[in-house]
Structures are given as C-alpha cells and as structure tokens.
Simulated scan of single mutants.
Amino acid sequence: MQKALYFMPDISGFTNFVNDTEVEHSIHVIAELLELLLDNSSIDMQLAEIEGDALFMFSTEIPDYSQLLQQTTTMLEQFHRHTKGYETQRICNCGSCRSAINLELKFIIHYGDLAFIKVKKIVKPYGMDVIKIHRLLKNEVPVNEYILFTDSAYNLYKNDTDETWIKKTEPFDLNIMDYFYKNLENIKDSIVLESIDNSTNTIENSIPDLIIEEIFDINIDVLFSYISQLKYRHLWEKGVRRIDYDSDKINQVGTEHTCVLNVGSLKFETITETTSDNLIYGEKTKDLMFAKNYHYFIRFHKIDENTTKIDINIYFEFTSLGTLVKSRILKRMSKIWENKLVHLHRISTNII
C-alpha cells in the first residue's frame, strides 16, 4: 500500500464567543490564518480537508527532516507576525479581535498507509492512520506550541533528531500510544514587528476643520459595530450607490473600500489613532474634489450602558481652488454628516 506523510497544523486559543460580531470575526481571523498557512507551505502537499481550525494535509513525496522543520518554523513565524499585527492594526474591540494575538499553533505529523474513501464525488484519505493523527490532536503535551511526531514519523527521521525531542506515552481509547514532541514556543517570542504609525500624517494642521458631536441611545459597542463594519455602511451611508469592499476580511487599519457615486467613486482607507481609553474609528481619502487629503476620526464615549456620545473630527488639506470655496465645502460636508447621523439614529431605534 502507498505510504504518505500526514501533516496537520492546528490553531487553538479562541474561547466560545456568543456575540454575533465576535463569532463572525473569529471565523474571518481563522480563515485568514489558514490561508496564510497554506501560502507558506513550501512542501508539495495536498489539502485533504479544512477541519474547523485545522488543515489536514498529506504528501506521498516524503520531505527530509530539514524541509519539514523549515516549513513548520516558517508557518509559525508568519502565523505570529499576522496575529501580532492585530495589536497594531485592529480597530475592533470585540473578544475575537482582542484575543487574536493569543492564538497558538501546533503541528501533528504522522507517517502511515494512504487509503481513500469515495462518497459521490468526494474523495478523502481514510483508515486507521487517519484516525491516529486525529486522535493526537488532543494530547497531554505540557506546552502550547510544538511539533509532534507519532512513533512512525519519529522512526522515519530518528537519525536527524536531537535531544530537544521528548518522548511521551499516553493511553488513547484502549491502546497505549508513543509519540515525540519538540517545543516551539520560543518562535513566538522572537517575532518583533516594526512599529506602525496608525494615524495619518497627511494633514499638517492638527486642528479639525469641522467638529460634530452627537449622542445616541445605543450601547457603545453596538454603535461602533454599525459604523466600523462595512457590511452595515449601506444602512447609514445613503449618499452613495454602493460600497465595494472585501466581505471576507475584517475592517482594520489599512483596509480599503470604495464608495461608488452616481458620477465617479471615492476610495477610502481605514485609519485610527493610538489611545488606551476610547474606541476610535477613522478613514482617509485623496479622491475628494477640492482637497489634496481628507480624513476624519470618530471618537466614542460611553455615557452609560445604553448611551453613547460621539465626536467627529473632520480634517481637510485643501487645494488652492478648494481654499477659495472652503466655507461652502464645510457647509456641504456638515449637511452630509447630518444626513448620515439621522440614519444612524434610525438604526439605533430600529426604524430602518
């Protein structure tokens, strides 16, 4: 029977969220990370299935030990670069986005027989070796990030392993199973991201050209969700034909979306400001007529559990022609935001 190396990267660390936003964002985060792992697979492996937070992969071309260790190291490094990026780029404060940095990754590797089962047009690996690697997803390894070899995988590479591999024996069902693991927790600590300036430096004047304040009878997190999640934008951004954006991605710093108007379009980029106290959401564009740059920040202030105050600070860097008609532009922009806030109030009182 043909032999194969089975390879399973498995993500852990999310708790059970009940809030709709948290569940949706956890799905997006896991999907991004699984795509990242696939993109960083340097060994020619076939993806048999996506199983929740794990990838089930296999290869009949058996890689050497150094290739295998390099792949797991690269995957783990890129995984933590991505999760650490949420700390500097996220705008959402939901449980999923806050805890993304705490996600962990382990690798389960097994060498065994390759057999398939076919149901309709679906063909997947099948048999005791498939069961064995899945059993080992739940184990008693005392560290959170590691690479685990079953006894058969270890025997395949035993001439290349060193003293950092630790043997464990554990009961599974009615059987006793030996496996070996190598601690990989040091990799996360070695990842240092370059500092990223989340704010915009395109406007020299730090004084807003326009300030709008409003109070809403709605929970701060719910209001922030309506404003920051692009899927809700059509509910209160009534002055555009449609909003084009990637619905498979979480809106964070650097995310772009396009407001398609009756004539032309405006491309916006999500920005924020560094703060430890308040939720802040912002956007910027260079596409606004009469302005070299335009951006705004919305600061959210919790008054009580069901009341939220927002401050909208709007900034322009006018062109020469824009400077001549500045007052008219600001008056028009004030009207535009007034209309947006009317629709946001309707959302908060369920009168849509």
Rank of each mutant, 00 (worst) to 15 (best):
E273C: 05
K118W: 01
Q229G: 03
G112L: 06
R299T: 15
P125Y: 08
V253H: 13
I43Q: 07
M8Y: 01
Q78L: 07
I303K: 05
L261V: 02
P142H: 11
L114M: 07
E273F: 01
K138Q: 11
Q71R: 12
G322V: 11
K124C: 03
I352L: 09
V260K: 07
I117E: 12
L33D: 09
S327Y: 08
R328F: 14
T200S: 15
S320A: 03
Q70C: 02
E61Q: 14
L261K: 15
T169F: 00
D20A: 02
V18T: 13
F180N: 06
Q252A: 11
G13R: 05
F17R: 04
D178A: 08
I352K: 06
S206P: 05
P142R: 10
D311E: 15
D10M: 08
T15D: 15
Y111S: 13
T255C: 05
K326L: 09
S26D: 00
K106D: 09
F56D: 06
S190V: 03
L344P: 09
L105P: 01
I243R: 02
T272H: 04
K335Q: 07
F180T: 05
V260A: 04
G127F: 06
F300H: 04
N40Y: 10
N159P: 00
Y245E: 03
L184Y: 14
V23P: 00
I329G: 12
D162L: 12
L330W: 09
